[in-house]
Amino acid sequence: MTSKETMYKAINTYGVENQLIKTVEELSELSQALCKSLIRLNYTKEKISLESVDNIFEEIADVEIMLEQCKMMFQCDKEVSAWKHKKIERLERRLESGN
């Protein structure tokens, strides 16, 4: 089974509503992992441990999987790609102008 087939199966098995809830949960877990790393860096001046970095990597993977499922559920891959392109172009313009 391909990864795409697995994700479609998850959507069909658990349902759209549950997968949207799962997406929010995974986004929250990534946010929490990133905040913990910032706290360690800014307040305790500790180095980020391999364990905490690995946790960030894991949470990024979870979020990417759920976002792929969102694109499948909303059938919006082309629209998301177009928005990403626009946003990156805007970022490029800002960087070139010094803002």
Rank of each mutant, 00 (worst) to 15 (best):
M1C: 08
T2V: 09
T2H: 11
T2F: 07
K4V: 11
E5L: 06
M7T: 06
Y8H: 12
K9G: 05
I11Y: 00
I11V: 07
N12H: 12
N12M: 07
T13W: 09
Y14D: 01
V16I: 13
E17D: 10
E17H: 10
E17V: 08
N18F: 11
N18A: 10
Q19I: 03
L20F: 07
I21F: 10
K22C: 01
T23L: 03
E25H: 06
E25S: 07
E25L: 05
E26H: 01
L30W: 05
L30H: 00
L30A: 03
Q32C: 08
A33D: 02
A33I: 04
C35M: 14
C35E: 13
S37I: 11
S37E: 08
S37M: 09
S37C: 14
L38D: 06
L38F: 10
I39D: 10
R40F: 12
R40G: 07
R40L: 13
R40P: 00
N42E: 09
N42R: 11
Y43Q: 08
Y43E: 12
T44S: 10
K45Y: 12
K45E: 09
E46C: 03
E46Q: 05
E46R: 01
K47T: 14
I48D: 01
S49N: 03
L50N: 15
E51H: 08
E51D: 12
S52G: 02
S52E: 15
V53N: 13
E58M: 05
E58D: 14
E58H: 07
A61Q: 09
A61I: 08
V63N: 03
E64Q: 09
E64F: 05
E64R: 05
E64K: 08
M66H: 01
L67D: 01
L67Y: 04
Q69Y: 04
C70H: 04
C70W: 06
C70N: 09
C70M: 14
M72K: 06
M72Q: 05
M73Y: 04
F74E: 11
C76I: 06
D77Q: 15
D77E: 15
D77K: 15
E79I: 07
E79P: 02
E79C: 02
V80A: 03
V80I: 12
V80E: 03
S81C: 13
W83I: 15
K84C: 14
K84T: 14
H85P: 04
H85S: 13
H85Q: 13
K86M: 04
K87F: 10
I88K: 07
E89I: 10
E89L: 10
E92G: 12
R93M: 11
R94N: 13
L95C: 06
E96M: 14
E96Q: 15
S97N: 15
G98R: 06
